[in-house]
């Protein structure tokens, strides 16, 4: 598939671009580490006053934080920088070049920039996840592991689709990079299980900004509380959201080219 060949080329380019600044990886580790420490400190403060939070034990929450950082890093390696660049390209007009290329514009746009060192987020997230599983000797069998991966996949697709929808708004509004703040603001709420939030916020984080599916549901899968139906629901929703984002992107392109739709 050509999209895969493009992915390889762009990853190589990203690695080349950043390999000259290897010390950046250390700084990224430092910053991510600090970020994680600050989240863990908040959890520590909360659990100094209570034993469970909305039914979640401390280790389950740290596993959730691990997943939070894994997803965060995945977004920051490619999706966020690429789509940010896309928005700048709309303003500068460089996006015109993308449109003259004989490849799917959405694929080109989604791959265009790689921040390889943000893999530090994924790395530290994975460490937190594994440490919490091991320390609490949680039993993660094949079923839980499979469910977890499926849930993570569904969450990733939803987050990606959501980003495409936000980025597509750039065809209508110029200073759209601010719209991305909606995502980041909402995403920080994913550091806690969305189940504890009041109804309106819970639904927003589930259906409007797919934070629940990206973080909480995979964490539930790891701790063995995700039901098969909720997983199926997540996968179904992922497909729907992906199809919608694709359609919306096409509408955006038509609008950019000034087609009366």
């Amino acid at each position: 598939m050509n999209a895969l060949r493009l992915l390889v080329v762009y990853f190589r380019i990203g690695l080349l671009g950043e390999a000259q600044y290897r010390v950046n990886f250390l700084f990224q580790l430092f910053e991510t580490g600090l970020g994680m420490a600050s989240v863990l400190a908040a959890i520590w403060v909360v659990f100094s006053q209570t034993d469970t939070l909305g039914g979640w034990k401390p280790a389950e929450l740290t596993a959730l934080i691990g997943i939070y950082f894994i997803v965060l890093g995945s977004i920051n390696v490619m999706v966020a920088p690429s789509l940010q660049k896309f928005m700048e390209d709309i303003v500068t007009g460089n996006f015109d070049y993308t449109l003259t290329k004989p490849a799917d514009a959405q694929v080109l746009v989604s791959l265009s920039e790689v921040r390889i060192w943000r893999l530090a987020d994924v790395l530290l997230g994975a460490v937190a996840l594994v440490v919490s599983i091991v320390r609490e000797s949680m039993v993660v069998g094949w079923v839980e592991g499979g469910k977890f991966l499926l849930a993570l996949l569904a969450g990733a697709v939803m987050v990606y689709s959501f980003w495409i929808v936000l980025a597509t708004l750039a065809f209508w509004f110029i200073r759209v990079e601010n719209i991305l703040q909606i995502f980041w603001a909402m995403y920080t709420a994913g550091r806690w299980p969305v189940g504890i939030y009041p109804g309106w916020l819970k639904w927003t984080l589930t259906l409007v900004v797919p934070v629940a599916f990206a973080v909480t549901v995979p964490a539930e899968a790891v701790s063995g509380r995700a039901s098969g139906t909720s997983l199926l629901g997540a996968l179904g929703l992922a497909c729907v959201l992906f199809a919608f984002s694709r359609w919306f992107w096409r509408v955006g392109i038509r609008k950019y080219a000034g087609a009366s739709s």
Binding site: N2, V9, R12, G17, K101
Partner: peptide
Amino acid sequence: DIPVIDSFDRNRVIYR
């Protein structure tokens, strides 16, 4: 930020 030749390489893939 990267050498010219790598941008060319990208076009090689895009234009197959």
